[in-house]
Amino acid sequence: MVLATEMGSSQPESSFDLSTYLVKRKEAIEVALDSALPVIYPEKIYEAMRYSLLAGGKRLRPILCLASCELAGGTTSMAIPTACALEMIHTMSLIHDDLPAMDNDDYRRGKLTNHKVYGEDIAILAGDGLLTYAFEFIATKTENVPPQQVLQTIAYLGRAAGAGGLIGGQVVDVESEGKTDVSLETLNYIHAHKTGALLEACVVCGAIIAGASAADLQRLSRFAQNIGLAFQIVDDILDITATQEELGKTAGKDVQAGKVTYPSLWGIEESRRQASQLVDDAKAQLAVFGSKALPLLAIADFITSRSN
């Protein structure tokens, strides 16, 4: 995929090869994740953690972290531990989300879900292990970054993953299941927290590691909030329009569970329009960064054009 992006009226059009960029960054992340989590005693828990952590996926969240760090003047080596930690936390959320007490799903990324392979008890513990190890990994493996920036990153990620972020969104999602009167405001809250908070942390934490200014962190935060919501809208659309083979997980789960989604409120075409508008608004936040923002801009466009 080659994306041509207009970076403001005063700058020439630039080309960016997103496919090559994603492949290279994903390869680096896969290597880092594999080496981050060796199997030691008790082997079963590490095997379960690795089963889900190394199950593939687009790795968009760690890639966003690396891209944001580079935009802010940092290097990928500075941000790799944080990028890996973000994927660990995301994987934890998937393991727990798939449990019978939550979404009760059998497939994730084209494979049996963790609890289907290791049992519910080990799956819960595998998620817990990934969540706690993520913070240890940032603290012990980040190099050539001032301690204050590492601490700020850990604190930001802790908020994003906790009751004020991902977990809070999950709670409201569970409480809203089966209700037909869920408002747009509540739906936005669910996804701004359950999906958006961690995605926003990916972008912001990469820039924190690089020492970005408060003004730049605010721009990147607004960018991430918009693409996070767009990402969820597209997810809702794909749950209706894509097959299980395309998604790598069970299709139609939202309808079966009686969940209110963006398409159920707006319809598919309006949902697509809303997602596209959110991406446009997100990209506008990065105009000040010029060509340094090309990777993030391309990923924003990719979010609305993806098929899984």
Rank of each mutant, 00 (worst) to 15 (best):
I237T: 02
I138V: 11
L130A: 10
A79K: 00
G267V: 00
I29G: 05
A67G: 00
A72W: 04
Y51T: 08
S291D: 13
S291V: 13
I138P: 01
L229R: 07
M92I: 00
Q256E: 14
P38A: 12
G127F: 00
L3V: 11
T250E: 15
I40W: 09
Q285L: 12
A101P: 00
T153I: 11
E27H: 08
E177N: 04
T304L: 00
I45K: 08
G258K: 05
R219E: 11
S221D: 10
I233V: 09
K116S: 00
A83G: 06
M102D: 01
V39Q: 08
D236C: 02
L297F: 09
G196M: 06
A163T: 11
G206P: 00
S271Y: 03
V31S: 12
E143K: 15
S305Y: 09
S93I: 13
I124H: 03
R25N: 10
R272W: 06
Y118S: 03
L151A: 13
T75P: 04
E136I: 04
D235A: 07
K259A: 08
D105M: 15
Q218R: 09
Q218H: 04
I40F: 10
L198E: 06
D181R: 13
L184N: 12
D106V: 07
G168S: 03
N226I: 04
G8R: 10
G119T: 06
L229P: 00
E43L: 10
A287D: 03
G110P: 06
V23D: 15
S9I: 02
T304Q: 05
L278Y: 05
G169I: 05
Q11A: 15
D216G: 02
E47I: 01
T5I: 10
V234A: 06
P81A: 05
L64W: 07
A79Y: 03
G178L: 14
S264Q: 07
E70D: 06
D173N: 09
E30M: 12
K141Q: 15
Y51D: 10
Y107I: 08
C202H: 02
V117K: 08
L296P: 05
K194I: 07
I299M: 13
L18T: 02
